[in-house]
Amino acid sequence: MPLESAISTVLAGEALPLACTHMQNDAFAGFYERSARPLWAYLARVSGDPALADDLLQESYIRFLGADTPDDGEVAARRYLFRIATNLLRDHWRRPRQRSIEEMHEELFAAADPSAQSDTRAMLGPVLQAMRPRERQLLWLAYAEGYSHKEIAVITGLASASIRLLLFRARHKAAGLLRQQDFPRQQDVSERSSR
């Protein structure tokens, strides 16, 4: 937007065109309805902190609306949104100490109060807590969201070649933990109780 028109628009108190020009207010409302819950689930489960997920969800959408988002459909827009959320999570983890995400202790990533997770009926809670943050991210994006290795590379900023190996290891670890918890039977019980 040229500076001259920005000045007149701001001084007149009119609505500024958002950078996400292809998506108008109504279209955004629809996109938001479809994508907000999965995004919140991703943020809450990967961070282990529902309150943080609330904050990062809002910030993700605000940045999404202010950014030059890809204009090639909802799938690309959604991927871009997950990328913003992933960057925000990484920034949050880096904020307390200027260290790499891999070097940080597990306690920093977990919610302060473990009971905050128990009320969520999270079957995966103990498994996710035993995983490293990067592993949680990769597993969620691959198996909960169904993204391909290439898409995960775009979202996380990791090399596409390393995703395959990292994901294989994480999956092996998660499967072992799930078997220890007798996961399929636990799932049956929870489904029966919800009926």
Binding site: W40, R45, P50, L139, Y143
Partner: peptide
Amino acid sequence: LVTQAFRSERAAASAMAR
């Protein structure tokens, strides 16, 4: 196993979002 676990967790967590 992992896909089923994560899919059901996604459904449960999505329902809880505020």
